[in-house]
């Protein structure tokens, strides 16, 4: 009764139903799962595989590209993630909005491996919500072949001689904080006069800037397109491994200290497994492997005995105490965030 065309139509339908069934089948996990959401390129894949083997689970590993994206995602709704990696002030903003699960008093036994100076920081005074993962600084990365004299101060980023070869991070927090520090103010300043001054010098700097980018500055430095850049410590080490001319310094005015942490979002479906994962990451051997793979500084002091000395002695990753004293942690700006945002818009707009 039906001619060929309806048959063909129903064939399409059946094929697609088949595909959907396949998807449903694939979606049904047989093992327990852990859903990890981390920055891209921020873990050693073999560590995940070892965790899967040891605990007989499957780890779903997804990535994001900024703290703000993570925050927006968690603010908009629970998306089923068990472990996330927010930075310092983001941790504070998250737990103040009740978006994190407490780690529990006896939850993370390997917290003892973390160095004292990395625990009980301002954003989480009792380490109730977060465990330290990686830490670092922000500084100046430069091409030592093109810039023969080592920059000592933040003013190198405002130097007319490097016009068109300066790259800044595309992040309002980092750029404005740098300007404030250069002017001698606190990186967390909310005073209108200080912010105005910072805005003025940054608008003056804009014609010298090649680009504002948080992702591409490494490849711009490595390729020689850019000579000098605002940079994060770990990224600079990675750039150095690709191009030995790239150096990293922390200016004499001091800089910011940042800490990335492991947290469990509220309503995480696999909280116990997440705690195991955090404990796993804090093991000395794992901490050492992570540090060696992603070339960032680890707060896991128990892992230092297993970390090669050339990483521990790398002053860009582990700056000397004298410089550390000049560094500040970021704090959440609260309502002053809007003031900063307006300045950023005026600089970029």
């Amino acid at each position: 009764m039906f001619c060929k065309q309806p048959l063909a139509f129903w064939k399409y339908c059946i094929h697609l139903c088949g595909l959907s069934c396949l998807y449903l089948f694939l979606a049904c996990g047989k093992q327990e799962e852990l859903n990890v959401l981390n920055w891209s390129d921020y873990i050693d894949e073999t560590v995940i595989k070892d965790f899967e083997k040891e605990f007989n689970v499957h780890v779903n590993y997804d990535t994001y590209t900024s703290n703000e994206e993570l925050m927006a995602k968690l603010q908009a709704g629970s998306s089923g993630n068990d472990v996330v990696f927010p930075s310092d002030y983001t941790v504070q903003a998250l737990w103040k909005q009740a978006l994190l699960e407490p780690l529990g008093d006896s939850g993370v036994t390997n917290m003892k491996n973390v160095g004292k100076k990395f625990k009980r920081l301002y954003f989480d005074p009792k380490n109730r919500w977060s465990a330290p993962y990686m830490w670092g600084t922000m500084g100046i990365a430069y091409n030592s072949k093109m810039i023969t004299e080592q920059p000592e101060s933040w003013d190198a980023l405002f130097d007319q001689r490097y016009a068109g070869r300066i790259v800044m991070l595309d992040s309002q927090r980092e750029v404005i904080a740098m300007a404030l520090k250069y002017l001698g103010y606190s990186m967390n300043s909310t005073k209108a006069s200080e912010l105005e001054e910072a805005k003025r010098i940054l608008i003056g700097q804009k014609p010298l800037v090649l680009a504002y980018t948080s992702d591409n500055y490494k490849s711009l430095l490595v390729s020689g397109e850019a000579w000098i850049s605002l940079a994060w410590s770990g990224d600079a080490s990675q750039a150095f491994s690709e191009n030995p001319d790239i150096r990293y310094i922390i200016p004499k005015e001091g800089t910011n200290l940042w800490m990335d942490n492991v947290c469990i979002p509220a309503r995480a479906p696999h909280k116990e497994l997440a705690l195991e994962f955090i404990n796993f990451l804090l093991r000395p051997d794992i901490g050492s492997r992570l540090s060696q793979k992603i070339l960032y500084a680890s707060p896991n002091e128990a892992s230092y005995t297993q970390t090669p000395p050339d990483i521990l002695n790398n002053s860009s990753l582990y700056p000397p105490q004298s410089l550390m004293e000049k560094c500040e942690w970021y704090e959440d700006l609260g309502t002053a965030n809007q003031k900063w945002d307006l300045i950023w818009t005026e600089i970029k707009g």
């Binding site: 900024s66 703000e68 994206e69 925050m71 927006a72 603010q75 903003a93 992040s171 309002q172 927090r173 965030n337 809007q338 945002d341 950023w344 818009t345 707009g349």
Partner: peptide, 11 residues
């Protein structure tokens, strides 16, 4: 600008 408001400015 929209991206900025939703993400960095958290407004």
């Amino acid at each position: 600008l929209i991206q900025n408001q939703f993400l960095s400015a958290r407004d």
